[in-house]
């Protein structure tokens, strides 16, 4: 009998702490599949950030360094410069990357560090209980925007994948979602692409993955999944925004 579906080698056989309907687990799996695909598990170093994905080391069977909130791209820079033969990726939430860590992400990208960044956009601060994030949609209610995000005061949500694409140092930037099988398939392809860029030494690669946070959105998993495809995809368009291979 042929086994057609199995757990990626780079993932551990453990239960995750993610809430039901959370997309972090799915995105973890796609990242692990990409690592397996290129056979680089043994030389991959993951950089965990602070947020719901802080336990990266509990789920991935790879070496991991934990970094302070927002600083994963700087930590990744130190690791990659010291060990240029390793495959280094960061895994960061939207509070982590697009608020407190904007300086580190922009400059690591601009230096063209040979790393891959997995940016999980769930329009809220998951771990701290659903506060407003830099990606919270206009009008969206959160625990610190009880009247809805007000663009006049809070600004508009940041579109990071497009922003990153503007930087000379970025070789690849794409936004994906995992809410439907079709999107999932595309996400898998683009996450693999992002890792391939690093494996082939082509430069800095960036993936923004839209993600559901049913718990903090106050929705059941199905409704939350639906919201990714509607409200979120309306504002955060899926697609590849930069690919130096096609330039």
């Amino acid at each position: 009998m042929q086994q057609v579906f199995r757990r990626p080698l780079s993932l551990k056989d453990v239960q995750t702490h993610f809430c039901p309907g959370c997309h972090h687990g799915t995105i973890h799996r796609l990242v692990a599949e990409a690592i397996d695909e290129y056979g680089v598990q043994k030389r991959t170093i993951g950089i965990a950030s602070v947020g719901c994905s802080v336990f990266l080391y509990s789920y991935f069977n790879i070496d991991v360094v934990e970094s302070p909130h927002g600083r994963a791209p700087a930590v990744a820079t130190g690791v990659k410069r010291a060990k240029p033969d390793s495959i280094v990726f960061t895994y960061q939430g939207d509070g982590d990357l697009a608020a407190i860590g904007t300086s580190e992400i922009i400059h690591a990208a601009n230096r063209g560090e040979q790393i891959t960044v997995i940016f999980v956009n769930n329009t809220t601060y998951g771990m701290t209980g659903g506060q407003m994030a830099p990606t919270t949609l206009v009008g969206q209610k959160t625990s610190t925007s009880p009247y809805g995000r007000n663009q006049a005061k809070d600004g508009a949500p940041l579109r990071m994948a497009e922003l990153m694409a503007q930087l000379e140092g970025v070789a690849f930037s794409a936004r994906v979602a995992v809410n439907t099988s079709r999107n999932l398939f595309e996400a898998k392809k683009q996450i693999k692409n992002a890792f391939r860029y690093q494996v082939e030494g082509k430069g800095f690669s960036f993936i923004e993955a839209l993600s559901a946070c049913p718990t903090n959105w106050g929705m059941d998993p199905l409704r939350a999944n639906e919201r990714v495809g509607t409200e979120m995809c309306d504002y955060f368009k899926l697609g590849v925004f930069k690919n130096v291979e096609n330039l």
Binding site: S67, R71, A74, V75, A76, T77, G78, V79, A82, S103
Partner: peptide, 18 residues
């Protein structure tokens, strides 16, 4: 680096890599 915050975290990463 872009700041002292980034520098200390690059140091953290390099040191973690031995």
């Amino acid at each position: 680096a872009e700041s002292e915050i980034a520098s200390i975290n690059m140091l953290l990463g390099a040191s973690a890599a031995g």
